[in-house]
Design a binder for these strands. Structure first.
Lengths: 113, 113
DNA sequence: GGCCAATAGGTAGGGTCGCTAGCTAACGCC
DNA sequence: GGCGTTAGCTAGCGACCCTACCTATTGGCC
């Protein structure tokens, strides 16, 4: 899988991962890997900056939480704007995928009787 | 359609457009627009540099041709390497699309019986 | 003869964004 | 006390598509 393939689609993936409930970055990374059948095994340097971007954009909110004795974790949750963005992302993905698939379609069905 | 969506997928689209036979840049642009149902209406500043990239990479070859009296056109054709790259691009697109769709899938089928 | 749109090709520069490579630190296990 | 895993973070880079602009031919219209 080429690296640039993700460009422009990562945000929707992250939002989708958060749809089922709040998660922290590390767990999001895991979920993405599992849900994608191992295809999206993103480095933390991809995930965390993306989460900041989404937070700055008001699509998710992060809250610090303490786990165990001292361990700090940041849990992210979708905002209403995030849910809207996710819906939008889904439909624009569908549109994009449809268009790409149409173009990539092999035109071997003997040219239109 | 967000601009970054295309990133990393344009090459395959261009190669696919050339699969049915040699075409010049302007015609490729048109074909892409038509085949995608108007979704990919790319500016020339996107198409021509991409064609150079593909040519430098040995995936296509361009030949100048004269049309009418003086008009110059550059006709591009797939190389064998280009055909291989297209096949690869198709399968990696399928893989990518499958993975994205899997992640974006709404998990509203009431969680596991 | 002049204007415009369509056809055809081209380039410089910019901005976005995911990745590479590195870091700190807590936790559990032995 | 050492090691692997969990957890978070950042600077800087490079790829690449877009914006904005340019030149030139061709043909229609008046």
């Amino acid at each position: 899988m080429k690296a640039e393939a993700l460009k422009g689609h990562l945000d929707a993936l992250l939002l989708a991962t958060l749809e089922s409930g709040p998660q922290h970055g590390y767990a999001i990374r895991d979920a993405l890997r599992v849900d994608s059948g191992g295809r999206f095994d993103l480095p933390s340097g991809t995930v965390y900056p993306a989460l900041y971007r989404l937070e700055r954009a008001g699509l998710i909110v992060g809250r610090w939480a303490t786990v165990g004795e001292r361990r700090q974790r940041r849990s992210y949750e979708l905002t209403p704007a995030g849910r809207r963005a996710l819906a939008e992302g889904r439909s624009s993905w569908r549109e994009f995928a449809t268009a790409v698939s149409a173009v990539l379609q092999e035109k071997q069905w003997t040219a239109g009787g």
